[in-house]
């Protein structure tokens, strides 16, 4: 699903990622951990094409990041969904409109969109808020809308950047159980966090600890040549 070889990335003279090599298979759950500024967000941004791969080699969901042209990035993003700490939803639109957006850009038929959105919102306990404006939702509900939008398309890979960062402990645990549901259905998940407590929610998850842009330690054999 993800294969990185000697990937480095710099913002000017500041190296954000240093010689990262990584292999994530379909169905894996990977935690990216480390302190702020360790390179977690940069790595996630690289994985969904928000920043270009300049050094090293990498493929994500079958897309060669090095050869990926700007006009084809949307094709990668149709396979890789992202959830952010700040939700990135449209507050002036309803819950339904926000979630349906991901299917509309794929030109899905209206009936299919309605059925699919309703099913996902039911799973996330948001069906009764379907026609409510997102501005009227709580932080936890807004985060669930963001997750609904990410999973409604059935992505191969789900990236989440500190999704529990703005939530209290109870909501964070509830959110993790949602991620686990999708993981159980075969979705590959890469979740960046500095919340050590949620690591325990997924005992068999891979953990990659980043520090100062480099891999500090992992809980599995990282020899990518195997």
């Amino acid at each position: 699903m993800i294969s990185l070889r000697h990937v480095s990335y710099s913002f000017g003279t500041q190296w954000a990622l240093k010689n990262i090599s990584l292999e994530v298979r379909k169905g894996d759950f990977l935690f990216l951990v480390g302190p702020s500024g360790a390179g977690k967000t940069t790595l996630l941004r690289l994985l969904h094409g928000a920043i270009p791969l300049k050094r090293g080699q990498g493929t994500v969901a079958g897309f060669d990041l090095h050869a990926l042209k700007a006009r084809r990035i949307h094709l990668l993003r149709r396979e890789v969904s992202v959830v952010f700490q700040d939700f990135k939803i449209l507050p002036d639109r309803t819950v339904f409109a926000n979630v349906a957006l991901a299917l509309e850009v794929r030109n899905m038929p209206r009936t299919h969109t309605e059925r699919r959105v309703r099913a996902v919102l039911r799973g996330l306990d948001l069906e009764n808020k379907m026609h409510v404006s997102c501005a009227q939702l709580s932080g936890g509900e807004q985060q669930r809308v963001a997750i609904a939008r990410a999973v409604v398309v059935g992505p191969q890979l789900l990236l989440a950047d500190e999704p529990t960062g703005n939530l209290d402990r109870e909501l964070a645990m509830r959110l993790m159980s949602i991620f686990l549901q999708f993981h159980a259905h075969g979705t590959t998940i890469v979740l960046a966090t500095h919340n050590q407590e949620i690591l325990a929610c997924v005992p068999d998850a891979k953990i990659l600890h980043l520090e100062d842009g480099a891999v500090n330690w992992t809980n599995w054999d990282m020899d990518v040549s195997k």
């Binding site: 006009r71 949307h74 094709l75 993003r77 149709r78 939803i89 850009v105 794929r106 939008r149 398309v153």
Partner: peptide
């Protein structure tokens, strides 16, 4: 811009 960023994020083509 926020709307554009979200549309890009969910895989909308540039022309869309």
């Amino acid at each position: 811009r926020n709307e554009v960023e979200i549309l890009r994020l969910v895989g909308a083509a540039r022309w869309y």
